[in-house]
Amino acid sequence: MIEAYHLSKVYSRGVYALRDLTLKIEKGEFLFLTGPSGAGKSTLLRLLLCAETPSEGQLKVGGRVLTDLSTSEMQAYRRTVGFVFQDFRLIPRFTVFQNVAFVMRVLGVDVPTQQRKTYQVLKWVGLQHRMNAYPEELSGGEQQRVAIARALVNDPHLILADEPTGNLDPDLALDIMNLFRDINARGTTVLVATHDREMIRRVGRKALTLEHGRLAGGA
């Protein structure tokens, strides 16, 4: 599913965020990316989202080299990827329902389908009763569930989550991780970046450790 060959990302003043990284992630895997702050976890996710381009090396997803994609191909690729951020990034002026439906709306999906799928996915994350609430009226855990629902609503092949439990207390964090496990059980590849080793231990899934932009080993 994901293949990286000698992947490097250099920021200004020659600072390496990733250095000569080679890895392979199979389809349907649930994998943690871990390591200290600045290890390159978020950079790898941003490269996978095509939010940045590699300085060197090659990154392939589903057999396609991401840097070779045209604008429209990149847009089509992103429609197969769901993303979840630590700070949720919900749109304050939208209700829960509108936040989730928004990603279908901007893809030109018809309104009945938007409504049906949004309700389904909100029910799946257990928030159907809060669909008319605004983000500020929700707890952190609920906001992250909305963000997960938004990531799931387009039936992505790949879910990328950057420190999704960073702002949550341990019990809520475990709930969120269980949601990711359920998503993975449906066949979706899940890649979660976290520096919380205790969480990784509790979830009991494979982890790749990054240090100074290099692969330091499996955990």
Partner: peptide, 16 residues
């Protein structure tokens, strides 16, 4: 923020 989300979900340029 909305525009960023639109880009990340692969919204066509015409929609953005």
């Amino acid at each position: 923020d909305e525009i960023e989300i639109m880009h990340l979900v692969g919204a066509p340029t015409t929609y953005v």
